[in-house]
Simulated scan of single mutants.
Amino acid sequence: METKTGPAGEVIAGSVRHAGRLITWIENGHPDTREVLRELAPHTGRAQLVGVTGPPGAGKSTLVAALIGELRGQGRTVGVIAVDPSSPFSGGALLGDRDRMLDAAGGDRGVFIRSLASRGASGGLAAAVNDAVDVLDAMGKDVVIIETVGVGQGEFDIARIAHTVVLVLVPGYGDALQAMKAGITEIADVVVVNKGDTPGADRTTKDLSGQGFERTGPPGTEPWPVPVLTVSALRHEGVPELVAAVDRHHGFTGSTRWRTEGERARRRAQFAARVADRLRTELLDPAGAALGDEMLADPYGAAEAYLDALLRAHRRLTGRHRAGPEPGLEKP
């Protein structure tokens, strides 16, 4: 593979400074970002991607810190993207929870940790997350952990990014999960009852295990029975078992169509997010989009006409054509 130079080459060589700068470029929409990411693309696809999600207060950051310690003890390098709630004033990430992760890293150059502001993105997942994951992947990290803000409809996006999704809960959550069962089976590959040293942890684990969660994959593949584990991240109890469960799932999906279909879904989401971001920037910038007063007088009709023209171009590029006339496109 051709040796890269410039920012891409520095990231591939493992430069922490250049990786951090590139992620800042991604967040800020720097014009040179797209070309650097294109140069990094052939060097991605090697990292194991692990999503960590769950309700606020479940101890996700403490668990991630424990995972860092366990993985480093096994000799694996680790990258972390922590998606934080955005500050309502600056738009920046609120970084308080990252401190314990940094303590876990302890200046270890085998660990790279970066917070991203959600900036109001659906479910707290920043639009930049996929690109930032690619940076850490190209940087050579063995495992990239994505920690999300909390559980919500948008958190289902994590399943399009991570190979394995770890859902972190706390004792007493079993009854609430019964009502959420259908949704949980769509996103969780491993369920963790954290704070396992507190009363009720074993009961919650037993209740959840008895519900028989499983993930279904592409047609023709075997379902994955979702394990439910009790963990105390603070005491590092159950963490080796959690890493082993994540590795089992990674091996299970890697030997079937799960992985290839999942990667296609991730790239589709990445494509759609980039197109949406570029369009949003273009259309909301008064100097960037030629939206005349006649279009703004009827924004609904103008939007439909604009999208019809855009979709016609899309179908032309992808070779997809509808039978019969396309609505709104009768006039040239």
Rank of each mutant, 00 (worst) to 15 (best):
G45T: 06
R119K: 11
W258E: 10
I23V: 12
L95I: 09
E282C: 14
R266V: 02
G210N: 08
G152E: 07
I81V: 15
G288Q: 10
L71A: 06
G120H: 11
A201W: 04
D308P: 04
D293V: 08
T77G: 03
A244Y: 08
L317M: 14
T53P: 05
V192P: 01
G220R: 02
V243G: 01
G288A: 15
I113S: 00
K331M: 13
Q211M: 15
D197I: 00
V11Q: 01
K195H: 01
K141L: 08
I12A: 04
P7D: 09
R114E: 01
A244G: 13
G154V: 00
E326A: 15
R267C: 11
R100T: 04
Y173K: 07
M295N: 11
S61L: 04
R46Q: 13
M180N: 13
D32K: 12
M1D: 12
K181C: 10
G14Y: 05
R267N: 13
M1E: 10
P219F: 09
T5M: 07
A159M: 12
V111S: 01
P85G: 00
T3N: 14
A105T: 03
L37D: 05
P199Q: 00
D189L: 10
H250I: 07
E2Y: 09
H18I: 08
G301D: 09
G57S: 00
L279H: 02
L291E: 01
G124D: 07
L67Q: 00
E70W: 02
T205R: 15
K4H: 06
W224T: 04
E35L: 13
I81T: 06
T77S: 15
R274Q: 14
D298N: 13
E155S: 11
K195Q: 06
A159R: 07
P332T: 14
E222G: 07
D103H: 10
R312I: 09
R312V: 11
G196H: 01
G96E: 14
L284H: 08
H314A: 15
V239N: 04
D32T: 07
G288K: 05
E147S: 03
G251F: 09
G14H: 03
D137T: 00
R266H: 10
T24H: 08
D131S: 15
R320N: 12
T216C: 13
V191E: 06
S61D: 05
E237P: 03
V111N: 05
T148C: 12
A82H: 01
E263K: 10
G57R: 02
V83Y: 07
K331C: 12
L279D: 07
G217R: 06
A104Y: 02
G91N: 04
I81W: 09
R320W: 12
T221F: 08
N28Y: 10
S118N: 09
K195E: 04
R322S: 15
D308A: 15
H163K: 05
I187T: 08
R259K: 14
W224N: 02
A303P: 00
R215D: 01
V135L: 06
E330D: 14
D137P: 00
A273W: 06
P56Q: 08
L242R: 00
